[in-house]
């Protein structure tokens, strides 16, 4: 497990992903600074994230289904706080 970004939104993202998907690997990157001045950048510094997540829950699912699972786990954070979430959803051991 690498360093996870600090901040209340990042912490909540991690909490939800861990509890819903029980990942064997979870990496979260905060890209918000790259989007400063952009319409979705709300000044919180926690609007744009990229996640790599490995979970057995993705077994047998295609890419769309895997990302839907991630979006579902993240839930209303997508509407309220997070403007963009890049997702790499893989199986444990897949790279």
């Amino acid at each position: 497990m690498t360093d996870l970004p600090r901040g209340p939104v990042a912490a909540e993202l991690v909490r939800r992903l861990e509890s819903e998907l029980e990942p064997t690997r979870l990496e979260l990157r905060n890209d918000s600074d790259q989007h400063a001045g952009h319409a979705g950048h709300d000044g919180s510094g926690e609007s744009h994230f990229a996640v790599t997540i490995a979970s057995g829950a993705f077994e047998g699912l295609n890419r769309v289904q895997r990302q839907r699972l991630v979006f579902r786990a993240v839930g209303d954070l997508m509407d309220r706080k997070v403007h963009a979430l890049q997702i790499r959803a893989i199986l444990p051991g897949e790279d």
């Binding site: 890419r63 769309v64 990302q67 839907r68 979006f71 997508m78 509407d79 963009a84 979430l85 890049q86 997702i87 790499r88």
Partner: peptide
């Protein structure tokens, strides 16, 4: 599409994915 982000690509009436996909 039950998909919370934009862009969304459709081919022959079917949802294919967003930017990552």
């Amino acid at each position: 599409s039950e998909w919370p982000t934009i862009p969304q690509l459709y081919v022959k009436g079917e949802f294919v994915g967003g930017c990552d996909i």
